[in-house]
Design a protein around this nucleic acid. Structure first.
Lengths: 248, 248
DNA sequence: TCCAGTACTTGATTTCAATCAATTCTAATT
DNA sequence: AATTAGAATTGATTGAAATCAAGTACTGGA
């Protein structure tokens, strides 16, 4: 806990996110090989782009700290928010087809990433089948997230969407070993509204209601959950702890 | 055109969907290797399941003919339609994480598939990097489809959703070399409505309107597009042919 | 510390699509 | 060909969230 971090070279093998990130399930020797190709650049500042739509695909990014927003613009020029990535998430797979990225990825906070050049990663994956599988798993996980997102947009009303989103974020923090009832969420209500297909006004009203009912408070990028049960209930989630819910 | 098909053993190398399906971009010798692991079972009948949620993941399916609906049930038991697959599409990647399928896949019509057992495919992919890349491309393409779906659900009103869906289907037929202004679409209006996050009533009203305006007619699983320009315009798609739009 | 621009809140009104309800049409089965 | 259940249509009504319109509160930079 009180280790002097700077004394260690940053590496996958001493990274706290090993259980969540790409190295999951890899042998120690394989992790060391992966480590060699990882490029750890200085962190992105708030509002810096990791990549943009149309840019040549060259890397996949594992987020070590911070938060990233994925978005595009519709034909009519409105911003469309596709998702948010937190520490331990892997982004950039959208670039695999046609060798260019299909999202814009922007840092919402100061954000450190592990940059994995794709040509090297692909070469390595050929040699390490577990790694190859791991990459596909990460993609498959992303698909699952997207599926949950569409489900939200298709079936849920505004209250349910807001509750579900907050609950989902809490779960992601829980899975990463952080407090799940109180956490920093550097996401603008505006972006959050866009992601849920709602307006900022609607989101504001619902958050005010949840706050007045002592369910959850989200102010100044800080979230506090007071009544987990109520939140889950509004979100339309089954009462019992869903054991199979180990996706983040 | 008038070749006696039964005289040929079905294979990737004589398949008309080669340019769309998994073999795209592979060398002839690689395709032959792929061919060896492909299991071509008798077609699925209408309403037969290719796979179901929770079932052990074992295969990826390339659709040769017919149509498949991907769906799940929400916590509250309502059906949620996630997509439709046509000839040339590849399904089953959702099963990669945790080794089980996360969708239900059901045949909407008599449907022939090429079943690719995943363990064999994975072994082969290790030997053929192009194939590995091809598999990831197919996953990435699926992600792009899902992205278009969320975009539709987030930003578009009912008219735009309906128009966009029909346009998208037409493009898929066009990409596969079929007529794009008249095609069979064995999808119930009910399923179509669920996919778009609308009710059957709303869809029915909009289709009636489009029909009365001589834009498009979709009756008895047969679609005819009379006014492509109007359809695109309603869908909110740019007037000029989007050159970069080669996804299906 | 002030200022300016952006983000957020709150209220009044409108609108689009859902819901409710009743037929009509269609396709599968015998 | 008759039967029947499911699918699609059409109309009347309701309701949830968008929109319009001021306001207030942050936040980052000078």
């Amino acid at each position: 806990m009180t280790k002097i971090k700077s004394a260690f070279k940053a590496s996958c093998s001493n990274c706290g996110l090993q259980k969540i990130c790409v190295p999951t399930g890899l042998k120690r020797t394989d992790i060391d090989q992966l480590d060699e190709i990882v490029d750890r650049k200085p962190p992105y500042k708030k509002n810096e782009y990791l990549y943009q739509v149309g840019q040549k695909f060259n890397s996949i990014f594992a987020i070590r700290a911070g938060a990233v927003k994925l978005f595009t613009y519709s034909d009519s020029g409105e911003e469309i928010v596709h998702g948010f990535c937190l520490a331990g998430d892997v982004v950039g797979f959208d670039g695999l087809v046609n060798e260019e990225y299909t999202y814009n990825a922007i840092a919402l906070d100061t954000t450190s990433v592990c940059n994995m050049p794709y040509d090297q990663l692909a070469d390595l994956a050929v040699k390490i089948p577990d790694l190859n599988h791991q990459i596909m798993s990460a993609m498959s996980k992303k698909m699952f997230d997207d599926r949950m997102h569409s489900e939200l947009l298709i079936k849920r009303n505004a209250d349910q969407r807001v509750a579900h989103f907050i609950w989902n974020m809490a779960e992601r923090f829980r899975n990463r070993g952080y407090a799940h009832d109180e956490f920093r969420l550097p996401i603008l209500h505006r972006d959050f509204a866009l992601y849920l297909g709602l307006t900022p006004e609607t989101v504001s009203r619902i958050l005010a209601k949840f706050n007045s009912e002592d369910i959850v408070c989200w102010k100044k990028k800080q979230v506090q959950i007071f009544n987990e049960t109520a939140l889950k209930k509004i979100a339309g989630l089954a009462e019992a702890d869903p054991a199979g819910q180990e996706f983040g």
